[in-house]
C-alpha cells in the first residue's frame, strides 16, 4: 500500500509542477527554489509532516520534502540548543543530501566528459 501512495502522491506533486513549467515563464531553477521554500513553510505550519506520514517517499523524495527536512532540523536544534540552534539545524538536517550531491558530482566531473544533447 505504501508503494501505491508513494507513486500516486509523488506523481501528483510532479504533475502539478509541470503546470508551472509549461504555463508560466518560471525557469526550472526558480521552481526548485519555490518547492524547497514552500516545503519548509508547510512544515512549519504542521501540514507537511502529517502529509508525509501518509505518503512516505511520495512526499519525502520531492524537493518539498527537502524543505520540510530543513524546517524539522531547525526546530529540533532550537528545542535543544536555543537561539544558536536556528543557525545549526538547517545544514545539519540537509547534510546527507547536499554532501552526497556535491561529493558524487565532483567525482563524476573527474570521470565523465560533457556530452552533446540528443
Amino acid at each position: 500500500m505504501d508503494y501505491i501512495n508513494a507513486f500516486w502522491i509523488g506523481g501528483l506533486v510532479c504533475a502539478l509542477v509541470q503546470i508551472l513549467l509549461d504555463r508560466t515563464k518560471l525557469m526550472p531553477g526558480r521552481v526548485m527554489v519555490l518547492l524547497v521554500c514552500s516545503g519548509a513553510v508547510l512544515g512549519a505550519l504542521h501540514i507537511y509532516q502529517p502529509f508525509q506520514d501518509f505518503a512516505g517517499a511520495g512526499a519525502s523524495v520531492p524537493l518539498t520534502g527537502f524543505g520540510n527536512l530543513l524546517w524539522k532540523g531547525v526546530k529540533e536544534a532550537v528545542d535543544q540548543e536555543g537561539f544558536i540552534g536556528i543557525f545549526m539545524g538547517g545544514f545539519k538536517a540537509s547534510a546527507v543530501g547536499i554532501s552526497a550531491a556535491l561529493i558524487f558530482s565532483y567525482l563524476a566531473s573527474l570521470v565523465f566528459e560533457p556530452k552533446m544533447k540528443k
Binding site: 513549467l21 526550472p28 560533457p114 556530452k115 552533446m116 544533447k117
Partner: peptide
Amino acid sequence: HFGSAEKEFRFPLGYANQ
C-alpha cells in the same frame, strides 16, 4: 556551436530541462 551556445546562454548540456 550548439555546445558553446548552450553553455553561454542556457544550461550545461547535462542539465535536465524541457
